[in-house]
C-alpha cells in the first residue's frame, strides 16, 4: 500500500505540511518496497477546488493512506468515496523524515 505525507519541500528534511490541498509537495512512500519519491503539487496555487483535484491525484497514484494536518470538506468527500484512509497529525514543525519513521 502507498502512503502520502504532505510536505513543504522535496527532501526528507522538509517540514511536514499541515495543509492537504495546498501542500507544496507530496512524499509518496511505498510500503511494498520501502521506496519513497517526491511529487510536486501542481494545484497548490489554484484559487479554488485544490482539494478535489489533489484528491483525484491521490486516487490516480493508487494511494491507500494520506497523512496531513487537516482535510477540507470537499477533499474529505472524495477520499471517503475511494476508501482512502485519512490521518490528521497536529505536530507543527515535524519533518517528513520523523513522520516517515513512525509509520515504518
Amino acid at each position: 500500500m502507498k502512503t502520502v505525507i504532505t510536505s513543504t519541500g522535496n527532501s526528507l528534511e522538509s517540514e511536514f505540511d499541515l495543509r492537504f490541498g495546498r501542500a507544496g509537495w507530496f512524499c509518496v512512500y511505498d510500503e511494498a518496497n520501502g521506496n519513497y519519491e517526491f511529487v510536486k503539487n501542481m494545484n497548490a496555487e489554484d484559487s479554488n477546488g485544490a482539494g478535489i483535484k489533489v484528491s483525484e491525484k491521490m486516487v490516480e497514484l493508487g494511494v491507500g493512506k494520506v497523512i496531513s494536518g487537516d482535510f477540507g470538506p470537499k477533499a474529505k468527500d472524495v477520499l471517503d468515496k475511494f476508501n482512502i484512509q485519512m490521518v490528521i497529525l497536529q505536530n507543527e514543525g515535524a519533518t517528513v523524515d520523523s513522520v516517515l519513521k513512525k509509520i515504518k
Binding site: I67, Q85, V87, K102
Partner: peptide, 29 residues
C-alpha cells in the same frame, strides 16, 4: 456513509477507517 473519525489516545493522531475491521488500531503508533 460516514468515514467516522477515531482519536488515538497515545499519539493524539486523528484518523478514519474506510474499511471497518474488528480491531481498529492507530495507523501511526
Amino acid at each position: 456513509l460516514d468515514g467516522s473519525w477515531f482519536l488515538c489516545k497515545d499519539c493524539h493522531a486523528k484518523f478514519t477507517c474506510p474499511t471497518p475491521t474488528e480491531g481498529i488500531g492507530c495507523p501511526m503508533c
